[in-house]
Each structure stands twice: as C-alpha cells, then as structure tokens.
Design a protein around this nucleic acid. Structure first.
Lengths: 143, 143
DNA sequence: GTGATTGCAAATTTTTTGCAAGATA
DNA sequence: TATCTTGCAAAAAATTTGCAATCAC
C-alpha cells in the first residue's frame, strides 16, 4: 500500500523497495525474529540479504516504526504494533500472540503513576503472559 | 555456603563444584547473561568453560532453580530470584534491576483471574518497566 | 561402579561490519 | 548530485554439539 511508503518517510527514512517489503512483511507477521522476517520476505523479494534485513530492522527501530520485542530464547524479535498491548508468550514454542486488553495496560499505567520510581525514566511497559497454548499447534515440532 | 549444595541437590542435580560456583555467582549477580556469569565465575573457578556454563545454566533451568529472563538484545539472561517480581530494564545499557513491588504483581494477577484467556495455560507473569536510568551509570560506555 | 557431568574443540546459529556499487530524495 | 542504502563476503558474537575423560553419589 501507499501508506507504508508514507510511514517510512515520516520516520525520516528513504522508502526503498527493501524497506517497503520488510515493513509489509512485519505488518503481516505482527512480531517476528529477524530470520522469520527473512524467510517470509524472500517470498516477495528473493534478493534480500540477511545483512540488509538487519539494517532495515535497525533503521525501523531507530525511527520508532518498530519496537524490539523481548524473548527468552536468544533471538531478537521485532514488533510493528506500537500501540500498547500485552503479549502471550508460548514458552515451548517461543511464539508470541498479541493480547489486546486495554484494561490491563490502563490498570498498570495508573498504578505506576502513583509510584515514583527513583532515578528511572519510564518510557514503556511490557507485560508478558507466559505459558503454553493448550493443544492447537502442539503437533508442530520445535526444530 | 552449604545450603547452595542442598538447593542444587533438591533440584535432582549432582552438586558439582562447577554448579556450586555458578549458582553462587548467580546469587551474587541476581540476573545475568551467560557471559556475565562466565566473566564473574572465572574469578573463583578459572577453568570453567563456556560450554559448561551453558550446560550448568540449562540444568538449573530444567530443575527450576533459575529462570530464563527476557531481553531485547540477543542474549539469554538468567535469574535466580524465582519469587515474583517485576524488572526495570535500561534499554540503553541492556541491564536489569529488580523492581520489587508485590502490589503490582498482585494487581495484575487479580485482574487476570477474572479474565479467562482461551486455550492458554498461564504459568507466569512478566512485567518489564522499560526506560533509562537518569545519570548514575551513564558514563559507562556500551561496548 | 554407574550414570551424570565436565571440558575440549569444532560446528552452528545469529548478528555485525567494511566497503564498493547503486538508488532515493 | 549528495547522501543514504544495499549487497556481498567475511568477521564477530553467542550458543550448541559430540565425545572421551572424570566425578559425585
């Protein structure tokens, strides 16, 4: 879409085809590790290099288009949804699912407003609900 | 201490000197990446290998003595404090600090009790307060 | 004694870098 | 055109593996 291009430019970045491809892949995936993006983006843009993918993702983070996601395996994850939302994290599969519950975020934000954490400049709240999905995708083997 | 040995054995593991060294290092550090543990443990046990450190940490995780910490850089972190607590995460320095606020955890736990998340077996809640520490350690350069 | 654990070295996986060529605003 | 961005290949960083020697129980 055209508005992807605009978003990228609004971040002060040049809207190259590579960036557009990565961004729209991220929109599709929601949150993904660098190589999940790589796998997926190759479908539409086979010539993209890993190095470029990392470059692009890094530029997105700097521009605030995307946010680094936390994980407990040793991979960097990225997330396009910059609105506030929590995550369900499947610890067996290392996968994320958005958990969209404005009430939860609001609750915590309100609570923290009353506390003043000394010497800390709070910019973000990240809530992960850790567990496992019952059945469903359990047949997919961890590689 | 003697009770480190007991804790390790209580987890069904053999209390080897390496494990004792790693565990007491973790107690000292609170939470640390594998190579932070490595750096630190070498002081007291110089012959320890990286491979062993990873083995030991992995065995601790399996035994429930230690918990994998979430991070947004590409490193695995580990945490000995298995009681529930939130974390302050300094995004510039990639460091953690315990944020010990039982009220916060309780608040969220209570809230989620009322919700039933479909198909999800919730085992843990992880709250990260992301930001930067004002001054203080800012002079330490990121490597 | 026996099975679990260590340590080595080498392999894998993930991320980063330097730099020349190319594309964007 | 001037600057930013890409792509390559190679390096660095982080984690894992196979296997023989060793140790804890």
């Amino acid at each position: 879409m055209q508005n992807i291009k605009e978003k990228i430019q609004k971040g002060g970045l040049k809207a190259t085809p590579q960036r557009i491809a990565v961004y729209s892949t991220l929109l599709k995936l929601g949150h993904a590790s660098a190589d999940m993006v790589g796998e997926e983006v190759k479908e539409v843009f086979p010539s993209l290099t890993v190095a470029t993918i990392y470059n692009v993702l890094e530029s997105f983070v700097r521009a605030g288009l995307v946010v680094r996601r936390f994980s407990s395996n040793n991979k960097m994850y990225f997330d396009v949804n910059t609105y506030e939302h929590a995550h369900l994290y499947d610890k067996d599969m290392n996968t994320y699912l958005d958990y969209d519950d404005p009430g939860l975020i609001r609750l915590v934000t309100e609570y923290l407003k009353s506390k003043e954490i000394p010497d800390f400049n709070l910019t973000d709240i990240d809530i992960q609900l850790i567990g496992t999905f019952k059945e469903r995708q359990q047949h997919i083997l961890k590689k």
